[in-house]
Nucleic acid binder design. Structure first.
Length: 276
DNA sequence: ATCACGACCTGGAGGC
DNA sequence: TGCCTCCAGGTCGTGA
């Protein structure tokens, strides 16, 4: 479900939880990603009785900072939701972790497919966590530059689509925005990275940023599952140019958008204005 | 080392 | 109605 704009939208809408104290921690008992147990005891030690001091984002990961040396690491996987709920709200099915706040509100993590992740990290040493260690630069920060991207591309032989999905290259791009950014840059998703010119790398870098920023301005893309911390859907789906639009006319040249599979993932492109 | 594929898990949509 | 198949926004382990 959630790529960078969606995760950032959740992060922003969690602002009203800042300053609140986490009273108790509840867990469904079900494992999450890779059948890995949620470390409830460690979460209780790290967050129980402590105030939430901040919420940060690294790529598609959220970091909930609390008083003391640790932070909670949250990844929404495909179907995860992280919501701030008023007291007395009915608990959704597939709720797996609940942080009950001292004022009665609850921060609830639900995830039907259980591809998500909930863990504890040490603040200041976040990169020691294996999930965060490999993350590349965040496209909304200054860390991503075209020259580095170009150099990396030249060393690899994958398709541009796979390249963009690699979280070590850019942290936060997922399946929707990979197609969208390549459309904007007029590059065919099946192109091999080795053939990327410097000018194209600049264009691609700009396109990635533009697509993500635009989606963020519209509160993210809600196709099925995504809602922000208040339960509201994003409006960006109506602005998608290619994703999910097979057969519809390209908004630049009117050619029918095509759908193909790259590494088993649905990929959308315009066969006329995206150069192979 | 790099790459492509399948697996993980549940639910919704569509076909019959 | 019910049953079947396919598909889904992510990541990781496998084997070539």
């Amino acid at each position: 479900m959630p790529e960078l704009p969606e995760v950032e939208t959740v992060r922003r809408t969690l602002a009203p939880a800042l300053g609140a104290t986490i009273a108790t921690v509840w867990h469904s008992g079900k494992p999450l990603r890779l059948n890995r147990a949620v470390p409830v005891a460690a979460i209780r030690r790290a967050a129980g009785g402590r105030a939430i001091t901040g919420v940060r984002r690294l790529g598609k990961y959220l970091l909930v900072d609390v008083d003391g040396p640790r932070s909670l690491l949250v990844h929404l996987g495909m179907s995860g939701r992280f919501r701030l709920c008023a007291p007395g709200t009915a608990r959704a099915p597939h709720t797996h972790v609940v942080l009950r706040l001292a004022d009665g509100r609850e921060l609830r993590f639900s995830d039907p497919r259980r591809f998500g992740q909930f863990d504890v990290v040490t603040r200041g040493d976040e990169r020691a966590h294996p999930s965060l260690a490999v993350l590349g630069p965040d496209p909304l920060e200054e860390g991503l530059d075209a020259a580095t991207l170009h150099a990396q591309a030249r060393r690899r032989k994958v398709t541009l689509k796979s390249f963009l999905l690699d979280q070590a290259v850019i942290a936060g791009v997922g399946n929707i925005y990979a197609s969208e950014a390549l459309w904007l840059a007029r590059l065919r998703p099946s192109r091999r990275t080795g053939r990327l010119t410097e000018a194209e790398a600049r264009l691609l870098t700009r396109s990635v940023r533009q697509v993500l920023e635009h989606a963020l301005e519209h509160g993210g893309t809600s196709l099925k599952d995504f809602v922000d911390a208040d339960g509201r859907e994003g409006e960006n789906a109506e602005y998608l140019r290619v994703y999910g639009r097979e057969g519809e006319p390209c908004s630049r040249c009117r050619t029918a958008i095509r759908r193909t599979l790259i590494q088993g993932r649905a990929t959308y492109f315009c066969p006329t204005c995206q150069l192979p």
